[in-house]
Amino acid sequence: MNKIVAKEMLSENVVKLVVEAPQISQKQNPGQFVIIRTDDRGERIPLTIADADKEKMTITLIIQIVGTSSHKIANLNPGDSLLDISGPLGKPTHIEKVGTVIACGGGVGIAPLYPIARAFKEIGNKLITVLGARNRELLILEKEMAVFADEMIVMTDDGSYGEKGLITAGIEKVLLREPVHLAVAIGPAVMMKFVALLTKKYDVATIASLNTIMVDGTGMCGACRVTVGGKTKFVCVDGPEFDAHEIDYDEMLKRLNTYKKEEQVSYDGYLKSLT
């Protein structure tokens, strides 16, 4: 159960795992996520499903190493198993033909964006992807996206690849140039906040997919609550996608920092245990 069948390092700190998940692989749709646990002392970690293979009955997970749990996942190898996987959780993305869709992915957010972008293309939209990363080394899934994207713009903070600048600069170039009917933004909360501000200016409907702290992922705990349009929503059951123009990003950013101190303590201890 839950056996890892393939592993690939996409960059120095981003790992891709293909995991056996017979039931979830059949049921998942773009935009949904799973909750995993590596071992019996481990946290329940939400991870967006980056891809699935119904025939091989596998799902693909892409994880950035940021702390104990992600590091534990990255240390697993083909043949190892995840202790628990449950899902698919959250509402799937509403995929429809709208005209032109701009898919904006920042950092490891490109992973969950990938199946969503592909689905928008497959249903008949013109798809423009704008990918942002700090530098060339950290850019992931560029080739995979290029297979189906009508146009691809890459932005790096340091100019080591594509164009130098923030992802918003690349998006704005498109918005100035042609009519866009829908934007999808997935990435760090700050990135989504500024993409939303930009698309609001151009009056382009935008959805953002949120990755908040969760415990159960089934609506039971409320750790993932965010304010959307002045109302409290649970990312796990009401989302993970919301109208990007209605999200209270500042509150979300603060809540993401809830356990900053504890996460550091845990990670320091974990790294020490590895040596």
Binding site: R41, G42, T68, V215, C221, E262
Partner: peptide, 25 residues
């Protein structure tokens, strides 16, 4: 500000009272 469900789940199910021995804080 927690819901009691989250507070109790972290402690009872995830054993957060044994953090950092258990990973959930």
């Amino acid at each position: 500000v927690y819901s009691s469900n989250e507070y109790l789940t972290r402690v009872n199910l995830m054993k957060a009272y044994q953090f950092p021995h258990y990973d959930t804080p």
